[in-house]
Design a protein around this nucleic acid. Structure first.
Lengths: 145, 145
DNA sequence: CGAATTTATATTGTATACAATTAAATTGTA
DNA sequence: TACAATTTAATTGTATACAATATAAATTCG
């Protein structure tokens, strides 16, 4: 019998989808930690730097949309990346409310040291290429609108 | 062309598996929030109560193993569930270091109000039954040591 | 037995997340 | 053009996460 048998069965941890999702997310971030320590980055700072490696310059709102984070999370995060000299704050000409952050040379050079990380992480995650692709598709279904 | 084309392509957000995993986990927790608010529970408190609904009585170590959380997270969490009278602290007879938490009547009655949540959440997540099962399998692969 | 080690939990410190609020700047519009 | 509404970011407050440390109790073992 596979299906839950009484009205409370559905409340057991083992039948939840959210729980392994939540655990797997934390577990993967845990596996990044020793690799990112070498770059003096946390996981959230790492994905933020990915955005800057790609886009060079972003305001808080654009970054928030890319990373699905709000200013309550990003403000202190950016302050910390700024303190580490990986990004710099510049003021917008056209709108004084806007705060633009640009990647620094030091932030760019960090990319050289990060370039091996995707391979290293792939080696720590026990999924085949096809399974990873499948997982990607399923996660995106959860995320779409 | 599907594969990354220069040595930095692999550092783009869109090629990461960790990132949709991290976003999907937060997104699912976000969808629980309005449902759990009615029970005066956060998501982490909810999965903790799931453990107590099933096991009635647990010490911090057992709970940590079930939920993959350490005492640094669980101590304040249990203090809060205790303040809400959903669990109570009892002292162990056989080992004075151990702190046992037991579910209260109020904690048990919360289960009645939680019983609809799994169905409600399933309705908010755009995955078929089969897709959810697939996802479960893939996530467990990541989690298995 | 008794010191050294191990174990169980709590505390401290740092870094997210996110709701709610605030403040400043811009925009829409009567 | 005044001025209400909206927008952008920062701040505040609450709740995780987790590493590192502290503390007390149990266990190991010489």
């Amino acid at each position: 019998m596979v299906k839950p048998m009484n009205k409370y069965e559905a409340l057991k941890l083992k039948y939840q989808l959210c729980f392994p999702l939540y655990c797997a997310s934390k577990e993967v971030i845990r596996r990044y930690r020793p690799l990112l320590e070498r770059l003096n980055l946390t996981y959230t700072q790492y994905i933020t730097m990915m955005a800057f490696w790609e886009y060079k310059s972003l305001n808080v709102k654009e970054l928030g949309k890319l990373l699905m984070l709000d200013s309550g999370t990003l403000s202190p995060l950016l302050k910390s990346l700024e303190a580490k000299k990986f990004v710099a704050r510049v003021k917008s000409e056209k709108d004084n409310r806007e705060v633009i952050f640009v990647i620094t040379d030091e932030g760019e050079s960090l990319k050289e040291r990060a370039v091996e990380i995707p391979q290293e992480i792939a080696g720590c995650i026990s999924l085949s290429f096809d399974e990873a692709k499948q997982l990607h598709v399923l996660l995106n279904k959860i995320l779409e609108k």
